[in-house]
Design a binder for these strands. Structure first.
Lengths: 113, 113
DNA sequence: GCTTAATTTCTATATTTATGGAAATATAGA
DNA sequence: TCTATATTTCCATAAATATAGAAATTAAGC
């Protein structure tokens, strides 16, 4: 993760509608939600929603897959984790007890050991 | 944490110079850095730096304290943690093994149990 | 109260971003 | 191919944001 990528990702969720969309997808899990359902649920007009979905996709924070006539959008958890790791990198002057980098893996599951 | 607060915080670091500033302060620890040192280290003109520091302060992501003739800025780790928790809230449709919310406490230290 | 140094405010300009209606473009079933 | 539905693109407009020089302010030491 570099500065520019992080800024692109952060800008993609630094907007009320897009933050709502992203959080809904984070909570929806890997199956995601269709554009129509997202728009209906959050009360966002088609064209506006499409614009915002494109922003989030471009940043790499969400994925899209076509299924029948619908396009399903889902959170890219790996991208989210990379961003959080970048923000907290070398946190607190190396004090290990200060920062714990978050993890949120979909493919490989971790034990809390 | 609500949508608007999160957007304000995210917008405050969704900018190249400000992200650099914030990450430098995250890494600097609670002692922080003076405005002059930040500006010199990152090559940012006075007025531009002042503008960006104000944005970060307004969002609540950094704190300022006067010390002699200098103003020291430091990361507000609690605000950062709250943001990260908001982003990952109820992650992955309740799958506990998917998301682990990050923590980065300065005052109360956690054991990794 | 004067001087020096650190930081902020003022100002103007350039750039980017958000919005939503209308039209266009897919997609799949009949 | 025709039709219905889902989604995107086009477009114009409004609003917010980034930049940095110059001037102003603040704070400390003498």
């Amino acid at each position: 993760m570099d500065n520019k990528s992080a800024v692109t990702i952060l800008a993609s969720i630094a907007q009320e509608a897009r933050l709502d969309i992203f959080r809904a997808l984070v909570q929806a899990g890997s199956s995601g939600m269709s554009a129509g359902v997202i728009g209906e649920r959050l009360g966002i007009p088609n064209s506006t929603l499409s614009f915002h979905l494109k922003e989030l996709s471009y940043a790499g924070l969400i994925d899209a897959r076509q299924e029948s006539r619908f396009i399903y959008y889902s959170a890219n958890y790996e991208a989210m984790n990379n961003l959080l790791a970048y923000l907290t990198e070398n946190c607190c002057a190396g004090d290990q007890t200060c920062c714990t980098v978050s993890t949120c893996e979909t493919t490989e599951k971790e034990t809390t050991s």
